[in-house]
Amino acid sequence: MSPPRLTGALRSFSTVSKREEFTEQVYDMKIKRLKRQELFSREGLTWQKIVQFFTQHLDKAEQQSAIQELKSVLQAAKQIVDTEHGQDTIESAAVFLFETFHNKDHVGLEETRAIKQMFGPFPFSAADTSCAAVSRAVAPLGESLVEEFVRSQSSCRIPQRSTAFGRNISFSYDCYALDPQEALPWDGGPDEETSGGGLDF
């Protein structure tokens, strides 16, 4: 809990701000994740584009096994989202898994975190399965080709830091702090005579 603050009192007792209570606010992260998934599915790479990419760049024999691997990714995506969701949501989750694992050979901390951030708690085996399946699917294609494909399709999702407001503004992290020199004015215990000592600026 935050310590008592002047501005807290002003918010509570004056009429100059909007009345709102944040202290007990409980936020449902499910809503945020669903919204994030929705935004993710709206732009960039789609499952159709991924399937198309494989059919374009692989010969018939390789295509068959790649499609099988992609089916495994879809299956894993179904476990990670919820069975109650429709095909679009599952495909979008599969796209996310593909993007996450296209250049990884195992499920690391970053990937685990990214999946949890997007979908909430999930079965690790599903992540493991999808990572392995993506890895096998992209193997015949070559790293740079897949990398280029994912980058070109996903670029609209990544914020351009070079155009962000404030990028050229220097910012200081300094903050008001207690002066460490303002030590207790006695050695060993309270002493009446030192009361009302100077400010020692």
Partner: peptide, 17 residues
């Protein structure tokens, strides 16, 4: 912006900005 927000901004960011 309101007065409590402006005061908060000062105490949070004012030292170096």
């Amino acid at each position: 912006f309101d007065i409590p927000k402006i005061l908060d901004l000062c105490v949070l960011f004012g030292k170096g900005n």
